[in-house]
Design a binder for these strands. Structure first.
Lengths: 201, 201
DNA sequence: CCTACCGATCGGTAGG
DNA sequence: CCTACCGATCGGTAGG
């Protein structure tokens, strides 16, 4: 295989994966057939297998590539020497920026990862629980430092945070152009940290 | 059909639907086969069709029954003559109580409704947007009455609220017994309304 | 990237 | 609730 062919194959494989992400998001992994995918790409179903090994390989690359991006973003934030609430704020903004770079892959990451087979599913869930726990530690740090209320349930807080973050790709439409990803992150973190209520004057 | 048979059929149909809900939650609607379901019930796949008309009929009854419960709960709250923030609080607690009554059906309602065919899917989405908009009006009322900050994005606020509420069945385990459904609603609404941050002393 | 094809499994029906 | 079965569709392979 020449260099040019390698590059061409790589980019064609990318095309297949990106189109698959759209299809998986729309119909769900199980309900999306390889024949659907082939049709979207204008080729025969059998031809897909020149580019990918299996349907699940596509799901795997989507899920694990996103997981890697999320992890890198959080590691960047953890290094910084700022207050817990600022760290939480930056973690939230980072997470939203990673999602905003590929909303389709983010939706698949969130909703379709359960169709991974073992041992990939287990590996994926371990990465995810690790990521969540690191956010939880930031919140716990905030409680200890008296930045956050001592009465909050940190598990509830972190799950609420994640629910809000992870559903974003389901309703956020950047082409609607009302609000930018960073601005969205700022508002969301402000809402979770400061709440909806009017500050006492 | 005698009365006794009618009652027996009804309860058997209920058993089929409840077991199907567990299966749909676990594997997803598309990946759950009628043969899987039959095996869980200890009968042949063909025998299922003495109780239900089709696979989708099960999904329909799960989704629309939950939708009805949510609507009734919110209507109850809307009647009450209280502040917007209290109305929001009661709406959240009501929503969580409805979910807590059947966490399995709630998870299916949330994650599998997209597999409804037309025209049911459209009807379902209309019910859902209506429900969301009624919560949004409560938040807007709170902004107008100066209970909530004028700077909040009400669409973002309501979608964040719903994301938090709707993901609850995915991680909340009442048998873990750490926190009761009502207490969960109270804490969640406090968190969204007042935020995580320590009140200024 | 295509033609030709495979075994497995799907939701569901007929008839009892 | 069962046996027997159907047409459709699935993910994927062989060979070019």
């Amino acid at each position: 295989m020449t260099m040019t062919e390698a590059i061409a194959n790589l980019s064609r494989k990318e095309q297949v994966i990106r189109k698959a992400a759209e299809l998986f998001k729309e119909k769900g992994y199980a309900a999306a057939s390889m024949r659907d995918l082939a049709q979207l790409l204008g080729i025969e179903a059998a031809s897909l297998y020149s580019h990918i090994k299996s349907k699940e390989e596509i799901l795997r690359s989507l899920c694990f590539d996103m997981a890697t991006e999320f992890r890198k973003s959080l590691e960047e934030v953890e290094k910084q020497n700022v207050s817990a609430s600022e760290k939480l704020r930056r973690g939230i903004i980072g997470h939203i920026q990673v999602m905003a770079k590929d909303l389709t892959a983010s939706a698949v990451f969130m909703n379709e990862h359960r169709h991974l087979s073992q041992p990939y599913l287990r590996d994926f869930l371990l990465l995810r629980i690790n990521y969540i726990n690191r956010f939880k530690k930031i919140i716990e740090e905030g409680v200890q430092k008296d930045e956050f209320k001592r009465t909050i349930d940190t598990k509830l807080a972190v799950m609420t945070l994640f629910s809000s973050l992870n559903w974003m790709p389901m309703w956020y439409d950047p082409s609607g152009g009302i609000i930018e990803p960073i601005e969205l992150g700022v508002q969301l973190s402000d809402m979770l940290v400061n709440g909806l209520k009017q500050n006492p004057k």
